[in-house]
Amino acid sequence: MIQNAKDFKLGAGLAGFCLLALVYLIPSQVGSLTDADAMMPALITGFILVLSLLLMLQALRRPVAEADQEHPPAGQAVRRSTKITLAAAVAIMAAYAWLLDIAGFVLTSLVAMVALFLIFGVRRWLTIAAITVITLAGLYVCFELLLGAPLPVGTLLERFLD
């Protein structure tokens, strides 16, 4: 009987990854396991594989440690809404990273900041506008003018300017 399902799954996932790395990733991305280049990756992967199996073994015998327990033990509805907020924040950050190249620093950051404020529950539009403008203007001045590090303009604006 598995005492700690979370650790067991983690160990199994890592062991699976290590096997994939040893059988496919290292040979295809580095070279034969006997090559000098592949020595370190193969050694480390083998070590992680052993540790993963040990983690699975421990998960079979030891119950969940206090430190591993989920915090906070809030109600299911709260946790679901938190998860949605968390997923939304990650999605915004991913979109932000991908759209910077297209829409540029100013537009993307503006949209991302407002969206982040909204998902964090801020509804005061004046505050949102003030913090957003001050932050973006400060970053623009700092990077573009003081440090001479150009911020991305975005292919859209570049095309428009051309």
């Binding site: 924040a89 950050m93 932000y96 990273a97 910077l100 620093f105 950051s109 991302a112 900041m113 982040l116 404020f117 964090f120 529950g121 801020v122 505050t127 913090i131 932050t135 973006l136 970053l139 990077f143 440090l147 590090a149 150009p150 911020l151 991305p152």
Partner: peptide, 21 residues
């Protein structure tokens, strides 16, 4: 924190970009 976190996340993006552009 609700006012701080969006600013921090934008700083993360610009910080990651800033070193090597």
């Amino acid at each position: 924190r609700a006012y701080l976190f969006p600013v921090i996340l934008v700083l993360c993006v610009i910080g990651a970009y800033g070193t090597q552009q």
